[in-house]
Design a protein around this nucleic acid. Structure first.
Lengths: 213, 213
DNA sequence: CCCTGTGTGGACTGTCAAGTCCACTACGCC
DNA sequence: GGCGTAGTGGACTTGACAGTCCACACAGGG
């Protein structure tokens, strides 16, 4: 008897409310730092509802992961989808910084990843898939650049996308630890400089290393 | 009445044993995933001993952080201290990869950082200090390069060190999530390429982007 | 040889959180 | 208008874990 299979509109609204609140709480306090009673209180629901919609806590966490992946990626739009030039990449970078200079909480996905990878294989797979989507979006933009001859034909868009994503994650981790966005800016700029160094000389549009755009 | 102030040799041995075992357990299962009973069992000590040497669990965690910072940094020696050229940096990179290709568990400091930064300010400070030491070691090597004119005089060793550290952290996070060292390699190579692009043309020793050294 | 303080053992308590259960309500369909 | 299913409320059980307490062992110094 797995949790609620058929949902009415009302049920779906309640379920969404639970996942949204859980996502916020987990982002702020982590998975183990968030109790189901906290979720219950934040949503004015009852214990039985949580177990009506989710078989157990880990199922709720997995639903949160799905939501967070979507939220994190859409929060970077439209800049992420338009990162098809150095200028576009720098606009995306600015967007990232703006998103994180308010509250340097780190990336929700990064936090979930380090908390769950060695305890919940299903969650891990969902997070890996989320990172892959993110990398894919970056790689797509870089691939477009390459097809427009704005990037060295030898450059590997997938690898560059992965490196860029790692810079973002590492930058956010250090930003969270230090309480400042500076590490994020520095890390992403370093990676972007590396990409810029691979732009076809004629098509290079950006400014030199490390300078804000 | 804070925990044990004066220790005999025997007491110090016990304390060290507790911290070492706790460090291992926490690296594997996280702070919240490690109970004091687990530590007790792993060290064949008793509850009263834990509270004899540490006021509470967070005090033990802080001792673990100190140990982990030292362990993480010394594990990178001597390569980290000799990263005073592109070749030296690449040897350090190889060392990092070797250290992590066995068990892609991520960086203990990274994990602790994302787990503790918004719950224990003291732990956060200790971790920030640890990251700062790491960054400082990298920056020192880069500074040496610059003083030898092997690096662009305009390059900022501190910023490059921070970016490199972020690449390592992000790479390790993704390595942990995907279960492969590949992201670490890609991330660090991307950052190193950026540094190489700032080497003084005459002193440049390395090979082009992304190739292993 | 006792006396003091460090080191050790392990039972015990209190709290908090996951998960269960049952009673009740709301809504649609026959 | 009853009947079944989705939705809701909240008390209860169970277990794990942080932290406490007291009793005992082992050392050295008078």
């Amino acid at each position: 008897m797995p949790a609620a299979t058929v949902l009415t509109e009302r049920g779906r609204a309640t379920r969404d409310r639970i996942v949204a609140a859980a996502a916020t709480l987990i982002h702020e306090h982590g998975v183990t730092g968030t109790s189901l009673d906290d979720v219950r209180a934040a949503t004015t629901t009852s214990k039985s509802q949580l177990y009506h919609y989710f078989t157990d806590k880990s199922a709720l966490v997995r639903a949160v992961i799905e939501l967070q992946v979507d939220q994190v990626l859409t929060a970077q739009q439209p800049e992420l989808g338009e990162a098809t030039s150095m200028a576009g990449l720098r606009r995306w970078r600015d967007r990232l910084i703006t998103l994180n200079e308010r509250d340097a909480r780190g990336c929700p996905l990064g936090r979930l990843a380090s908390e769950l990878t060695d305890s919940d294989p299903v969650a891990r797979a969902a997070l890996t898939a989320g990172f892959a989507r993110w990398q894919g979006l970056l790689a797509a933009g870089l691939e477009t650049m390459r097809s427009h001859s704005a990037l060295d034909p030898d450059a590997d868009p997938q690898a560059l996308g992965l490196g860029l994503l790692a810079a973002v994650q590492g930058g956010l981790l250090l930003a969270q630890a230090t309480g400042s966005v500076a590490p994020l800016r520095t890390a992403v700029d370093l990676a972007l400089d590396s990409i810029q160094a691979r732009t076809a000389p004629s098509a290079a549009t950006g400014h030199p290393a490390g300078v804000d755009g």
